[in-house]
Design a protein around this nucleic acid. Sequence first.
DNA 1: GAACACTGTCGAAGCGCTTCGACAGCCTCT
DNA 2: AGAGGCTGTCGAAGCGCTTCGACAGTGTTC
Lengths: 336, 336
Amino acid sequence: MVTLAEVAQHAGVSASTVSYVLSGKRSISATTRQRVERSIRELGYHPNAGARALASSRSNIIALMVPLRTDMYVPVMMEIAIAVATTARTHGYDVLLLTGEEGPDAVRRVAGSGLADGMILMDVELDDERLPLLRGARQPAVLIGLPADTEGLTCVDLDFKATGALCVEHLAERGHRDVAVIGEAPAVYERHTGFAERTLDGLRGRARELGLRLLHRPCEGGYDAMAVTLARILDERPGTTGFVVQNESAVEPLLALLRQQGRAVPEDVSVVAVCPEQVAVQASVRLTSVAIPAQEMGRHAVEQLVAKLGGRGGDEVVLLAPELTVRASSGPAPLP
Amino acid sequence: MVTLAEVAQHAGVSASTVSYVLSGKRSISATTRQRVERSIRELGYHPNAGARALASSRSNIIALMVPLRTDMYVPVMMEIAIAVATTARTHGYDVLLLTGEEGPDAVRRVAGSGLADGMILMDVELDDERLPLLRGARQPAVLIGLPADTEGLTCVDLDFKATGALCVEHLAERGHRDVAVIGEAPAVYERHTGFAERTLDGLRGRARELGLRLLHRPCEGGYDAMAVTLARILDERPGTTGFVVQNESAVEPLLALLRQQGRAVPEDVSVVAVCPEQVAVQASVRLTSVAIPAQEMGRHAVEQLVAKLGGRGGDEVVLLAPELTVRASSGPAPLP
DNA sequence: GAACACTGTCGAAGCGCTTCGACAGCCTCT
DNA sequence: AGAGGCTGTCGAAGCGCTTCGACAGTGTTC
């Protein structure tokens, strides 16, 4: 282990000078800087993270709490996590991976021990039990997702209400009057996950304004669950010509079932999905969809957090505008 | 910030005594222990991670390097990562999330700075450029995956060779003679990712032994790529009745295409997949499959690493035995 | 009952870094 | 020419913890 002191000795300067070369917090003459940098390279010096954290009371670590459940939108989570990790690195931070398992205790532990300088929470519930802790903490935090009360919190999310509205508009413009929504698994609604409810709000609100009939049904992923859900929908509303799907793992089963029943997409029925680009493009019918901008969400969250750590920027709610891409799964409603 | 010294004062003992209560490295009388524990609780004390790391030169952090690419088996990666994080916590470790982006530099940085006590690498290539660094490092490491040369390394992986063999055996037993393998994307083979090649080894070896004809075709995920691949396969080997699929995102397209062409599963053709349980169960036909035991791999990797950190256990290669579960997608070969 | 071994506690010395105040040397201004 | 202001460097004081050696006090052994 090479230490700062050894570098200093090798370069013929004091330890503090080396430290200032590293941090840039005081001006250093060009010649000295070069000498020090050379010594650092020659000795293969790496600053000790623990010592640094102790002396500066900053760890340069961001904690990321991911949900323990792997029952929904896993690829989105992963993409966000990776975006967080890479963006954090560009700002000089590393990322600590926490699972939701410990719940509020994890927040206390990380904040109390100074392990991380700030945290990013994913999968926030409308009335999350970690929120009071965050509001009272000296550690800044950013949420990915939107709780019921955002007072004193910084949040980043896709504007799911606008997303819902956008889907309905798209179908309405093409003449669809009866639209069914294949929602997330029932558990997701019971848990009051914000995005699911907000999407529904947007769907319903716009449907009302535009005079569409909307039927919402939660649905576990998978073929069997989708089969049951679809049968019920068509039983109740045989005239349904538009589908909005929010559950990734219901997309492909839905397409298979429709095909099987002789309903052509997009000639007979239109399907609009809310899902990552990749899913939309790889589906058996290229899907008209509103993309979930996972990378952008991760990136934004880190940048908000870094700003707060730097004393800049206050509490703010950033809602990313949804974008609908028209592909092969939607078209004009068939003539009655 | 409550410090050790404050706890000590509150409890009327010396700082070292509090430290020993916390670590259990020296015996402490029951009464003293209780007094100290009470003070800790009352003051809400959390040991400072940086100070701890500095004084003990152990950070109690494990670094996990995940691949940057999100082009393959994302749910598997995520499941492993979560299993690593939760298992690590049960051993008192936190997990630092590194993306492959930095490559070997990340290894140097983490090892050099003492940020982590050890590391777990996922998505190891057969001849990974990080391996020499790991062999020379004082930090223990565990690989999830198997490089060409495992000398001096500890590895955990599914026995993909046995997995390939198992798939072939299953089809052979049911009378299939012409089997096609839908492999991972070409890029995966070009990158010489171990598991893909080892699966192929297993498939080919066993097929030769059992006298099956085997046709292997890499395939990008998605419907369009699968359509092209399938057409080529059936063109070249019209008598194909068995499919082994290794690429998750080709599974559903394959089923859709077969259905579309009037080939019934499992009456006309049998499909065996290598994929996580969830995919197999949720597919439009419940798939006969060899599960990828993501959780178990993550858990094992942590346990190996913790053992090495504790000075126990040496270099070892753990290959988990594959298990094939028969579901609805495979049956006897049709009579010619 | 002297010699010895435990047990439980303490004090002090760092771990490697950051950062504050000090200050030498030089430049600029009047 | 002296006062004042910069610039670049240094020394020293911690940051909060672990851990080593020391040592009272008690129990055990012949």
